[in-house]
Amino acid sequence: MNKKLIEAFGPILLVVISIIYTACNNASSSSSKKQLISFKPIQGIHYSEVQRLQKNGLALNAYGYQLEPQWQINFVSDDSASVYSPIKKQFLNFPLSRGYDSVFNTARAWLRVKKMNKDSLVLEILKAKNDSIEINGSKVYMLFYADNYIKNVLHSDTATLRRPSRRDTQFVKSLVIKANKDITKAFAARHPVQFISKSPLVTAKQLRTKPDIMNNFDTATDYLSPEYDINIDKAYADFYYSFTACVDDRGEMHYLRPLIDFSMVGEEAQKSYIHLSQSVMDSYLKYYFKIIPGTTLGFMHSSNITLHVQGKTSARGESKK
């Protein structure tokens, strides 16, 4: 009877056993994939970031924004990392939180380990919003080399390794050619426009974002959209205008648009504002400043800026009579 049962249900039993075996293997495999990443193999090694690249291998995007390798990191333990702060000019200790799928958090950044050994380290930057993480990543990768590897194997230094690649240079050249032929193709300059005063009555100051916890220490807006406060003493009238302009590769300024909401005041007020603010740009700014165009990788090119221009009939510190 038992023999007949085995003959009848043997194939079914084999299938059941196979399913159970496969399920056990998958569970074991899934469990191994969900192991928390450990930094013990590389603890105490100082790494310096030498490249920060997009998925296409370029360090710059179509807007001219250049990804800069800045990090220096040392994994002190599985729950602590020492990271160099370019702002404070020193190494700071940060808690290190480990997650699954090689994800970890330190120095207010979510990262995923793509490669790790004693000579090099590749991390992918993850986007975080509120309480969630974009697990697919930003497709931006950070390449680190161990300081010892840079010095004793590559016989180089971080400054040399961080230089733009030939591909980056060719890419920027293509952007520059387009921007200098057509200012509507202007892009952000790595080194922004400079205003050099020709008179003690006019001053220009670029506004700088103060890095803090509220902006996650991100000052990218200073790069992508530089703003300037310009003061003019002994002007023909008291005025204050805010507008955007394009500075081309020759240092010539081109008026773009006012930064005022005219929906409540009408078309005539808008026309007057544009006329007066453009006149100020074409007179005071063009005659009393030497304007140096923005540059990227050493190439001068058209780039857009924001201006807040204040004119006073009296000089600063001089009271009106």
Results as ranks from 00 to 15, higher is better:
Ile133Asn: 05
Ala107Leu: 00
Asn93Glu: 13
Gly64Trp: 10
Tyr100Arg: 09
Gln90Leu: 06
Leu96Gln: 13
Gln90Trp: 05
Ile73Arg: 03
Ala128Thr: 04
Phe104Gln: 08
Gln72Met: 04
Ser97Phe: 06
Glu49Ala: 14
Tyr63Cys: 01
Met116Asp: 05
Asp131Tyr: 01
Lys127Thr: 11
Ser132Glu: 15
Leu111Lys: 01
Leu60Trp: 05
Phe75Asp: 12
Ser82Pro: 00
Leu60His: 13
Arg52Glu: 10
Pro86Lys: 08
Ile133Gln: 02
Lys115Ala: 10
Phe75Gly: 11
Pro86Phe: 13
Asp119Phe: 04
Gln72Glu: 09
Tyr47Ala: 01
Ala81Thr: 13
Asn61Met: 13
Phe91Ser: 03
Asp79Gln: 11
Gln51Cys: 02
Ile73Ser: 08
Glu68Ser: 09
Ile133Tyr: 10
Gly57Trp: 02
Val103Ala: 03
Gly57His: 00
Gln54Thr: 03
Phe104Asn: 08
Leu96Thr: 10
Arg108Val: 02
Tyr84Val: 05
Lys88Leu: 15
Leu126Trp: 04
Pro95Lys: 08
Ser77Cys: 14
Asn93Arg: 07
Asn74Ser: 12
Glu49Asp: 11
Glu68Phe: 03
Gln51Tyr: 05
Asp101Ala: 12
Lys115Thr: 09
Tyr47Met: 05
Ile87Gln: 04
Gly64Lys: 02
Arg108Ile: 02
Asp78Phe: 01
Phe94Glu: 05
Asp79Arg: 14
Arg98Cys: 08
Gly57Asn: 03
Phe75Cys: 10
Ser48Val: 12
Ser132His: 10
Leu53His: 06
